[in-house]
């Protein structure tokens, strides 16, 4: 076997009341690859990745990360094992400065090595182009910059698996180009799971694509295969 699976799920499902938001998902993420997760609004993408990182518990099924069954592990432990999740609905510390926001992400990884904190935070901010705003209060940033801060917090954790939930929503075209370059660079030593609506971003970045519809995987394959898949076209046009 050439490819090593960093994360796998088997039969992963989640119900909200009677509604099956995610059904029976078997997903394998190969180490070092960029996987895109696409599907119409309400398909269950956020719910699925929330179960991966432990933000919400699964109704049934298993999640394996780094060869370990993490299904019942609380979120903070999974994160500590090397996952990072950036929120679809921007979730930053509004009243703290940009620096403090990223410091919180970096600090957890550094532990007691406090000396490195400042240079590492600044370096992380530089990667998303927020270095000049490090003293601004996060809540005062423009929406696009808040999205970048959210991404910076994910990067600051230096995770093994970076889960990005619609990161480019609200970014300008120029910022999207920079984002694509950034993720390419990150993917050299990080596995990326990217939920994305912008098809050109997906095509530019993804090694493989998984398509979710009504909580089920309806297709999986290379960008070319997905592009040509009639079921995917139906889901997007019909949904």
């Amino acid at each position: 076997m050439a490819a090593v699976n960093l994360l796998s799920t088997r039969g992963l499902s989640r119900n909200f009341g009677g509604m099956k938001a995610v059904q029976n998902v078997d997903l394998d993420l190969q180490q070092g690859k960029i996987r895109a997760l696409i599907g119409p609004n309400g398909a269950g993408k956020t719910t699925l990745v929330s179960m991966l990182c432990g933000r919400i518990p699964a109704s049934s099924g298993t999640v394996t990360f780094l060869g370990q069954d993490v299904t019942d592990m609380p979120a903070h432990k999974r994160i500590s094992m090397g996952m990072a999740y950036t929120f679809q609905i921007t979730s930053i510390f509004d009243d703290l400065t940009v620096f403090e926001n990223v410091a919180l992400a970096v600090q957890h990884r550094l532990g007691r090595a406090a000396k490195q904190l400042k240079p590492e935070v600044l370096a992380t901010l530089e990667r998303v182009g927020l270095e000049t705003r490090s003293d601004q209060v996060a809540g005062d940033l423009a929406y696009g910059h808040q999205r970048l801060l959210e991404i910076a917090m994910g990067l600051g954790q230096e995770p093994k698996l970076l889960i990005l939930d619609e990161p480019t929503q609200g970014l300008s075209d120029g910022e999207i180009d920079e984002f694509i370059a950034l993720i390419r660079e990150v993917s050299a030593n990080t596995t990326v799971l990217l939920i994305e609506h912008n098809i050109s971003v997906v095509m530019a970045l993804a090694d493989a694509i998984t398509v979710l519809n009504f909580g089920e995987i309806i297709a999986e394959g290379t960008p070319e295969e997905i592009h040509a898949n009639p079921a995917v076209q139906a889901a997007y046009l019909g949904g």
């Binding site: 903070h76 979730s91 509004d94 703290l96 919180l104 957890h108």
Partner: peptide, 13 residues
């Protein structure tokens, strides 16, 4: 400030 976010940065809240 934001308990959910602190948890998702890996802290044992």
């Amino acid at each position: 400030e934001n308990e959910e976010r602190a948890k998702m940065l890996g802290y044992d809240v």
